[in-house]
Simulated scan of single mutants.
Amino acid sequence: MNVSVVKHSGEDTGRKVTLSKEIFGIDPSDHAIYLDVKQFLANQRQGTHKSKERAEIAGSTKKIKKQKGTGTARAGSIKSPIFRGGGRVFGPRPRNYSFKLNKKLKELARKSALSYKAKDKSIAIVEDFAFEAPKTKEYLKMLSALSLADKKTLLVLSEGNKNVVLSGRNIKNTKVVTADLLTTYDVLNADNLILSEGSIEKIDNLLKK
């Protein structure tokens, strides 16, 4: 698949880049995508939820009424879950939601996500660029020049660029990542991918192992 390379100002450079079929042209695996996205979302969970059970409630341990003769059910403690202010039955406890996935499956998931974007023609290739200073206005100009101002976009750089990251940080529906931090979730969560020319080689090296 050949894609034209443009400058961040929107001008055509006259060059084209060939996207690898092994990464951008495979038969996508929906199940691999499902597992990778599920793991990504699970890893975002803090798992710090906690509610007090009856053994952790502060309160009197005195038997609140006599065992028999009241006409109601026996009750031994005010901390019982059936009373207001009592402990919760089987409440949430801190836990780790993360789980393991094989590297090859995660690679397949990323290839599948990228292939979907290539199939939908939702990938733009931008010549490597840098901003002299953090300017949100410059980033917005770039999106407008690429006709992506009203789209949810993901910009993939070959390496970290502080000025570009800071320029796009406050823009809604925009995210900037480096090629080595590209995830299946980020690819699918964006309407369009903007790949810097140098990031393509990095992606190839990461996923062609």
Rank of each mutant, 00 (worst) to 15 (best):
M1C: 04
V3T: 02
K7A: 09
K7M: 08
H8L: 04
R15M: 04
V17E: 06
T18P: 02
K21Y: 12
K21W: 12
E22N: 15
E22H: 15
I23D: 03
I26T: 07
P28F: 08
D30P: 10
D30A: 15
D30N: 15
A32K: 00
D36F: 03
D36M: 06
V37P: 00
V37S: 08
V37K: 05
K38E: 08
F40R: 07
R45Q: 04
Q46F: 10
S51C: 07
R54M: 04
G59N: 05
S60N: 06
K62N: 09
T70G: 09
T70C: 11
A73F: 12
A73I: 13
R74M: 12
S77F: 01
I82Q: 14
R84S: 11
G85K: 02
G86I: 00
F90G: 04
F90E: 03
R93M: 08
N96M: 08
K103E: 11
K103S: 11
L108G: 03
S112D: 10
Y116P: 01
A118C: 04
E127V: 04
D128K: 07
F129K: 09
F131M: 10
E132M: 15
K141N: 14
M142C: 06
L143I: 07
S144C: 13
A145L: 08
A145T: 07
L146C: 03
K152Y: 10
T153I: 10
L154K: 00
L154V: 01
N161F: 10
K162M: 14
N163T: 08
V164H: 00
L166S: 10
S167K: 04
N170K: 11
N170D: 08
N170M: 05
K175W: 08
D180I: 09
T184G: 04
D186Y: 09
L188V: 07
N189F: 06
N192C: 12
I194R: 02
I194V: 07
G198T: 07
N205Y: 11
L206G: 06
K208E: 09
K209T: 13
